[in-house]
């Protein structure tokens, strides 16, 4: 615009201003891709089903301990070792404890290196 008069310089300035503001807005929107990925990954990495399933099998196995100790110990060892080698998780569950509150307590523990879960399950 060198050869023209310079009456409308502020309009050009406004044009630049709007363009740049949209440019920075686009940068912000661009980050949403990353945000979406990390969110979905953290959801899929949280072992909700693993914990529920392991918890269920541990509680079920305690019924075996009431009438068949040999089978109970075998099943307990099965759960610990299969969990380590196939699920990359350390599980630990102790024998029941007769608590001062006149209930049986079953401590169970799950850790896969990222998520840790501990529960003190109480019988009726």
């Amino acid at each position: 615009m060198a050869g023209l008069n310079d009456d409308a310089q502020w309009i050009v300035l406004m044009g630049f201003l709007v363009s740049f503001s949209f440019f920075f807005l686009a940068l912000v929107i661009n980050q949403s891709t990353v945000v979406g990925q990390t969110t979905a990954e953290s959801v899929i990495e949280f072992p909700k089903n693993d914990i529920r399933d392991t918890r269920e099998i541990m509680i079920r196995s305690w019924d075996l301990g009431n009438y068949n100790t040999v089978n109970y110990n075998t099943v307990k060892e099965d759960i610990k070792i299969i969990s380590k080698s196939r699920k990359n998780a350390v599980v630990k569950f102790d024998d029941r404890i007769w608590g001062n509150d006149m209930h049986f307590h079953y401590p169970l523990y799950y850790n896969n290196g990222v998520t840790e879960y501990y529960e003190n399950w109480t019988s009726l």
């Binding site: 615009m1 023209l4 008069n5 009456d7 409308a8 310089q9 309009i11 050009v12 406004m14 044009g15 630049f16 709007v18 363009s19 949209f22 440019f23």
Partner: peptide
């Protein structure tokens, strides 16, 4: 009303960049 062409030019430039 001398700068009308500049107004249009500014708008056009903004639109192109957007």
């Amino acid at each position: 009303s001398d700068g009308q062409l500049y107004t249009i030019e500014g708008l056009a430039a903004a639109l192109v960049m957007l």
